[in-house]
């Protein structure tokens, strides 16, 4: 069961890509991107998980602790979440603008830039 988080995170990434390829609604595409982001974040968090490990704060450490968790993956994940928020916000903003211009959110119809 040790690899279960990795499998789940990769399933999330796969689902996100599936959404990006098969869906046409710009909002759903944004959700697809978010799902991939969540999969990657889950991957990072599960990389840093140590069974029985405690938070790396020496002053609060109980006397007989075995392992501490290296805090880097959590820091990476937090950063990645913030970045993901920014990208999602920007994409949704552009989706709103596109809807105002075209009156549709269908990516199949928003194809003026082709050829």
């Amino acid at each position: 069961m040790g690899n279960m988080p990795f499998v789940v995170s990769m399933i999330l990434v796969g689902l996100g890509f599936l959404a990006l390829i098969t869906r046409r609604n710009l909002i759903k595409l944004t959700i697809g991107i978010s799902v991939i982001e969540m999969g990657v974040n889950l991957f990072l968090v599960s990389l840093g998980y140590v069974k029985g490990g405690i938070a790396p704060i020496y002053t609060y450490a109980p006397p007989g602790f075995k392992e501490m968790v290296f805090p880097t993956p959590q820091a990476l994940t937090l950063t990645a979440i913030v970045i993901g928020l920014a990208t999602t916000a920007l994409m949704l903003a552009f989706a709103v603008v596109i809807y105002r211009h075209r009156g549709t959110l269908d990516a199949g119809k928003i194809r003026e830039l082709k050829g």
Partner: peptide
């Protein structure tokens, strides 16, 4: 305010 740039921006963003 033009229709084309937001479309390009969304695609590039993805």
């Amino acid at each position: 305010w033009e229709p084309r740039p937001p479309e390009a921006a969304f695609k590039t963003m993805v």
